[in-house]
Amino acid sequence: MRFGLHTGYWSAGPPPGMADAVARADEAGFDSVWTAEAYGSDALTPLAWWGARTSRIRLATGIAQMSARTPTATAMAALTLDHLSGGRFVLGLGASGPQVVEGWYGQPYAKPLARTREYVAIVRDVLRREAPVTAPGPAYPLPLPDGVPGATGQGKALRSTVHPLRADLPIHLAAQGPRNTALAAEIADGWLPAFLSPALDGEARALLAQGFAARPEHRRPAGEHDETFEVCATVPTAVAGSIAQAVDLLRPHLALYAGGMGSQESNFHREAMARLGYGDALAEVAAHYAAGDRDRAAAAVPEELVREVCLVGTPSDIAEQVARWETTCVTTLVLQTDPRALPALTPLLTPPTPPA
């Protein structure tokens, strides 16, 4: 089991201590560091700034929102960071949700799976640099066709002036719904689940197998799994004197995602957690959150749910909980935690010495 560090969303400003935490994670042997974006800080700038102090850890966006940039702009950023980091960049992409896409970026959210297919195909064409990039659309036509309002008709198919360091730079897709998960296995190099639980491993494996089967024949794995395909699951983590104390630390986090990270009609985080059988409790959380009572929303998060999708307690408690993940499809546990907890979690990187 590999481990990553998720730096999370910024609140009013940069998370205190995170620059040092990223440097410590690099020194300690963490596999990867991940950054997020919603409608405040972006995912690329912190990765470049903090990553400049590192030498070996992989630098990953978890996630870069597709609607924030055109596919070619995202490919430019990816190939640039890959060069600057010496081949350590991982491009994590996601469609976000209608509240952000339409409210912040002013773009339609319809047909996210079709848009994702187009987007990834264009990014890969830029990175392969085999020919000038063209795309039929409809979401991202290149060059912009005649007849589009405001178009001059002078668009030209172009090829990147920069030669990518890696034409096969890894692209991972964030997905929580069944169809998105299968799509990740079909067209990407990795899947980025959130609020996953070992209890859902069978369902996850079936969806990934469905995606592998939809690949072109030359890309299908020989067996049930693609050994090169990564599953990097973000897991909220809290270190405290007891499991109960740590659960209370993470209740507000889950309440935010269940009640505040999406509209009342469409919240993919809440839907993912509801698959564990907590639909009624999550509806109560969302209702309190919508009413502005965040304390009651947090209090309504069931302890059992927190323990299913998070790592909580003392370092030894957390080590025991990690063992549940080792037989799942997850290849990397990406710990989303307070930077001050990092020293207590570093022993997870060293397997225990077997008895003589």
Rank of each mutant, 00 (worst) to 15 (best):
A194N: 13
T181W: 09
A209D: 06
F212Q: 01
P143C: 00
F212L: 08
E186N: 00
E186T: 07
G153C: 07
S197L: 04
R215V: 00
P149D: 01
G202S: 04
V148W: 09
D189S: 10
A206Y: 11
G150P: 08
S160R: 02
L200D: 14
S197V: 01
L158M: 15
I171W: 10
A209G: 12
T161A: 15
A182G: 07
W191F: 07
Q154T: 10
A157H: 02
I187L: 06
P164E: 03
Q154N: 13
A185H: 08
L196R: 03
N180C: 09
L200G: 06
S197T: 04
L165R: 15
P198A: 01
A151N: 07
A222F: 05
P198G: 00
L200Y: 00
L173E: 06
H172C: 12
P143Y: 08
R166C: 12
L207W: 14
G155R: 13
Q154W: 06
R166W: 12
A182K: 03
A174K: 11
R220L: 05
D168Q: 10
P221Q: 02
G211W: 08
A222L: 05
E186M: 05
R166V: 12
L208I: 11
G155K: 12
E224C: 02
P164L: 02
E224W: 02
Q176M: 15
A204F: 13
Q154H: 13
Q210C: 07
K156L: 11
P216M: 00
P164F: 10
H163N: 04
A157P: 12
R159S: 14
T228V: 01
G211N: 01
P198E: 03
T161K: 14
D146N: 10
A184S: 14
D189Y: 07
F212P: 01
T152F: 08
R179T: 08
L208V: 06
T161W: 13
P193Y: 12
R205D: 13
D189V: 10
H225M: 12
R179H: 04
G147T: 03
G155C: 13
D168T: 07
R159K: 10
F212R: 02
P170I: 13
F212N: 00
L208H: 05
L200V: 03
G202H: 06
G223F: 06
L192D: 03
K156E: 15
P178C: 00
R205S: 12
S197E: 00
H163L: 11
N180V: 07
D168G: 06
R215S: 02
H225R: 07
E186H: 02
E203G: 09
A157E: 06
R159Y: 08
G190S: 11
P143A: 05
A199H: 08
A151K: 03
R166A: 14
Q176Y: 14
A199G: 12
P164H: 12
N180H: 13
A167W: 12
P198H: 03
L208G: 09
W191H: 15
G155N: 11
G155V: 06
A185Y: 11
R166S: 15
A185F: 09
A222H: 06
L208N: 13
H163Q: 13
S160E: 04
P170N: 11
A174E: 00
V148D: 03
